[in-house]
């Protein structure tokens, strides 16, 4: 970067952000306006990092609008109008995510661990600190509960939190189909210390439920004898990949049916967990 380009270096500062073909001059004017609003006219300059965050927010909101409100506003609409629509969309997403958080608080799994509780305690800070007008792409809170299938790195801001909570709720719904005793017994076998380790609570239950369905054992018991496990292993090794994958998916379907869970999202989520289990089982045997 040369000195000549310094104060305008922002125009190329966000290489990962979806840039499409926004007019840099209009983008510059919009950023200038956002900086003026951000400093409330008290300062003509801001640190590069602040300007970068503001620019990322603009690009992110334009991207949200492009994805969420495709029919309402064409790309030829004024950039500020599209940006404002993106900000509104981000705010709506945050509101929806807040409802999901309330639902997650109302419907906890039968057993939880420290990471889960800390995350649920930390998430309200997101809604208190989220600022769609200036930093729509940011997540102003820290949480560490590991989901079975993590949120895509391509999501930011309220979209990230919404997807995180959607996944957490699906996991909770699955876990609530089991008794605390069955889960405790499973966790004690699966993890050394499920309560304090940074571990996912859904994964062992999903895997064991799939295996139970595969062997024809009652799913709610979440328990198989070593002989039953060995038999499943042998059965899966004796068939080809495609067939084994199909059996695992069918077993996941049966488990969900037996548990009375019908959500499409949960179905896809559990099937993915079953496929991942198959990969691990095959890797172990090789």
């Amino acid at each position: 970067m040369t000195n000549e380009t310094t104060s305008n270096a922002l125009l190329t500062l966000a290489p990962d952000a979806p840039s499409y073909s926004e007019n840099p001059e209009i983008l510059y004017l919009l950023l200038e306006e956002r900086i003026r609003r951000y400093t409330m006219g008290d300062s003509t300059s801001v640190p590069v990092d602040t300007a970068r965050r503001l620019l990322e927010s603009i690009l992110y909101c334009l991207d949200i609008q492009r994805r969420a409100d495709k029919n309402a506003l064409p790309d030829s609409a004024p950039m500020k109008t599209r940006w404002q629509a993106g900000v509104d969309a981000a705010k709506r997403t945050a509101k929806r995510a807040k409802l999901l958080l309330l639902q997650a608080q109302r419907t906890p799994p039968p057993l939880s661990n420290t990471a889960y509780c800390d995350t649920l305690t930390a998430l309200p800070a997101f809604f208190a600190g989220y600022d769609a007008d200036f930093f729509a792409q940011e997540i102003p809170c820290s949480f560490d509960y590991p989901l079975c299938q993590p949120v895509s790195d391509a999501l930011f801001g309220a979209e990230y939190i919404q997807d995180f909570l959607r996944r957490m709720l699906a996991e909770n719904a699955f876990l609530r189909a089991f008794s605390a005793d069955a889960l405790l017994s499973l966790y004690e076998k699966y993890y050394i210390d499920y309560a304090d380790l940074l571990v996912n609570l859904y994964l062992p239950a999903a895997e064991m439920a799939t295996l139970c369905a595969l062997s024809g054992a009652p799913v709610r018991a979440l328990s198989l004898t070593p002989e039953q496990l060995a038999s499943i292993n042998q059965k899966l090794l004796s068939i080809n990949d495609a067939e084994a994958r199909q059996r695992m998916e069918d077993a996941a379907d049966s488990a969900l049916f037996e548990l009375g869970l019908t959500s499409d999202f949960l179905c896809a989520y559990t099937k993915q967990a079953a496929r991942d289990l198959l990969v691990r089982l095959r890797a172990t045997c090789e």
Binding site: M1, E4, T44
Partner: peptide, 17 residues
Amino acid sequence: RTRALFDQGRVELGVSA
């Protein structure tokens, strides 16, 4: 001004200080 902004890691758009 450009050099100072660069050295101090600041961005100034529009009206200058």
